[in-house]
Write a protein that binds this DNA or RNA. Structure first.
Length: 673
DNA sequence: GTTCGTTGCCTTTTT
DNA sequence: GGCAACGAAC
């Protein structure tokens, strides 16, 4: 009798990845888990991103087409890096994959449905500053009667409206709970909100919140649209889920549907965005919302030495609300206990950090393996000065973003107006660049524009120059205004369709803005280079609308590629950043500075935030220390010089005081700085 | 009435 | 570097 012998077909992954070998047990089971809802609770440094990256690779390996995968992150950078890593793993074209921030995915879906939403010619996106301009213009025309009561400024109003939307509560509730002192003027606030919403409609614009709110409304109100996307997105993955707010949570739920294949990854101990509406409840109640969900815990930390991890664990243990986790170190230690460095003054602090960086560098540590982390941007001031004077190169994720700088916004205003002729904010911005034109003249010109044929949708009635020269510009501005008008002619073709974005930028700088810059800014040359960079970035786009929305949605001036047109970083440099922006990153050496009570935790969290605010600050501290792989320096200045009260003595942060003594090693700093 | 420069005070975190 | 308040200049 012949022996039966069946050849087992090898059904290994097309990419040849040996998932079992490359991942630990819990990572492996999460990555290869069958379709369905899954919650991955992963501690700091345990390979959260790695797990998600391999999950995407695994899906592609199993024949899921990339366009059926939706990957949601909080920053563009996180999305880009994850997709790059996936590309390195598998050969599939990841450009077809839907990966990006909540806002950018929202933008994409809304653009595809713009007609249905009543935006015949698309819409422009306002950033915070544009939003503020629009709000101020609303306030100017609102004719409010608030008697002797204090009325919130534009910034505060924006924050209120935004928060209400993001946590899905009514404005009334929000005012009652968080802004009781504005109770007496609530009616006026409501009125302003209506006017603001109307104004956005009239000007064809959306703010950041609209990108989420309108997607959620679209999906909720239209079964066909909802089902379309639920079919399209067979697999939905969300990174940093602990930082989602109600709105983002709803967006995810609607996009994948109740029985969808949703995998969320997060760590409740790293939830640091409740001030902008993030709700840890989303991750804590996930199992309840998706009863069939599987939970995976990843509790091995690959990043930090045991000494750093022990400190982090001890610190976070002081928080009451959390999912219990025991984070175990995979690495061995024994080299260094985290240093507790108390110095006299902020400048001594800067000197210590700079000197220690130089020593480490001499010992062979690369500068890009070193980071200085702090609570607030202004904490970096002395350190920036010290590093500069000692010639230590550093890169900083500053408060001001590339596209928020005046010259970038000015040029963008020309472009935005050419693309969207109802864009009041951009119009006002560009006419106010004219000599002798302030708010009053600009308003008059805008009213005249609204009454003209130019504002109408569809092909441009006449040339821009003809239409614009008919507006009432003050005498002093006439000559320049003529040039602006001619410049705008160059931004569109005969029927008013925008030309390529790079050529628009060229026209604006060559036409009028270059001259303006040279008279207005001391560092005009630097700014011209910025605009060259912007132009280089723009040349990747053929469509002006697409370019402008990308510009608005781009995150900070951080690393290569993210900043428009930035050259790849060649020189190694120390990183200076806030902890919020350091989320998900790691360095061999971390200096945590300004660890004085009142600075970190922030004074406001101590005084009027209640216990939850303090726990959030502690999570922020936890995130700070868990960025460190090898060495951690906790630094605080004893004396802080304040403008008002002179020299003030500071105590170490309560987050340090509460730690067991043996977990830190006090360094004695002797004079001579 | 409107624009525009000066001065003094303050500065959390961000898609 | 932003913002409000003030005052000079048009």
């Amino acid at each position: 009798m012949p022996r039966e012998y069946r050849i087992q077909q090898h059904r290994g992954p097309a990419s040849g990845i040996d998932y079992q070998a490359e991942l630990n047990e819990s990572q492996y089971s999460a990555v290869t888990s069958p379709p369905g809802a899954a919650l991955v609770i992963a501690g700091a440094g345990s390979g959260k991103t790695r797990t998600l990256t391999y999950r995407v690779a695994y899906l592609l390996d199993n024949g899921i087409p990339p366009e059926n995968i939706l990957l949601l992150t909080f920053t563009n950078k996180a999305a880009r890096e994850m997709l790059e890593r996936v590309s390195a793993l598998v050969s599939t074209d990841t450009n077809r994959l839907w990966g990006g921030t909540f806002h950018s995915i929202g933008n994409r879906i809304l653009r595809l449905n713009a007609q249905r939403l009543g935006y015949q010619r698309g819409f422009s996106i306002m950033d915070r500053e544009d939003q503020k301009d629009l709000m101020e213009s609303v306030l100017a025309g609102a004719e409010l009667d608030v008697g002797n009561y204090r009325f919130p400024k534009a910034d505060v109003l924006i924050e209120m409206f935004s928060l209400a939307l993001n946590v899905c509560v009514s404005l009334h509730e929000l005012i009652e709970e968080r802004y009781p002192y504005f109770g007496p003027v609530e009616e006026s606030i409501q009125k302003v909100r209506e006017l603001y919403e109307r104004k956005k409609q009239e000007t064809n614009t959306m703010d950041f919140d609209d990108l989420l709110v309108r997607v959620v409304d679209l999906l909720r109100d239209n079964v066909d649209v909802r089902e379309y996307y639920q079919r399209q997105f067979q697999f939905v993955l969300v990174d940093e889920y602990q930082d989602t707010n109600k709105l983002q949570c709803d967006m995810v739920d609607l996009l994948c549907g109740e029985n969808g294949n949703l995998m969320v990854v997060g760590d409740d101990a790293q939830s640091i965005y409740s001030w902008r509406g993030a709700d840890v409840g989303n991750i804590l109640n996930f199992q309840r919302r998706y009863p069939k969900a599987k939970t995976f815990k990843i509790e091995t930390n690959y990043r930090s030495v045991p000494e750093v991890l022990a400190l982090a664990n001890a610190s976070i243990a002081n928080n009451s609300a959390q999912i219990p986790k025991t984070l175990l170190p995979a690495r061995s230690g024994g080299k260094m206990t985290p240093a507790l460095v108390s110095v006299d003054t902020p400048s001594a602090q800067a000197a210590f950090v700079a000197q220690r960086i130089l020593e480490l560098h001499e010992e062979g540590v690369e500068l890009d393996e070193i980071a200085v982390l702090y609570r607030a941007h202004f904490h970096s001031l002395e350190i920036q000065m010290e590093l500069t004077s000692r010639g230590i190169p550093f890169q900083i994720t500053s408060g001001l973003r590339f596209f928020e700088q005046a010259h970038v916004k000015d040029v963008a205003a020309f472009m935005k107006f050419a693309v969207n002729r109802r864009d009041e904010v951009s119009f006002m911005r560009l006419v106010r660049l004219l000599p002798g034109v302030g708010n009053a003249s600009a308003s008059r010109m805008w009213s005249a524009w609204l009454a003209s044929d130019g504002v109408k949708d569809g092909p441009l009635a006449q040339k821009f120059s003809a239409l614009l020269m008919a507006l009432p510009a003050p005498k002093k501005a006439q000559e320049t205004w003529q040039q602006y008008a001619w410049t705008l002619d160059e931004l569109v073709d005969e029927v008013g369709t925008p030309v390529a974005p790079a050529s628009m930028i060229h026209s604006v700088t060559e036409g009028v803005y270059g001259d303006y810059m040279r008279t207005k800014f001391k560092n005009a040359e630097q700014r011209e280079q910025d605009l060259d960079q912007l132009s280089a970035f723009a040349s990747r786009f053929s469509d002006a609308t697409e370019f402008l929305s990308q510009l608005a949605l781009l995150t900070g001036v951080d690393t290569e590629g993210n900043q428009p047109g930035a050259q790849p970083q060649e020189k190694e440099a120390v990183t200076l950043t806030t902890t919020h922006q350091a989320k998900g990153l790691e360095w061999k050496i971390v200096f945590a500075v300004w660890l004085a009570d009142g600075m970190f935790p922030h004074r406001r969290a101590i005084d009027d935030g209640g216990p939850e605010a303090l726990e959030e600050e502690r999570r922020l501290f936890y995130v700070t220390v868990t960025r460190a792989k090898d060495e951690l320096y906790l630094v605080f200045p004893v004396i802080n010089h304040q403008a008002r009260d002179g020299n003030v003595l500071q105590r170490a942060s309560r987050f340090i005081e509460e730690l067991p003594d043996e977990l830190v090693d006090p360094w004695k700093i002797t004079a001579g700085w």
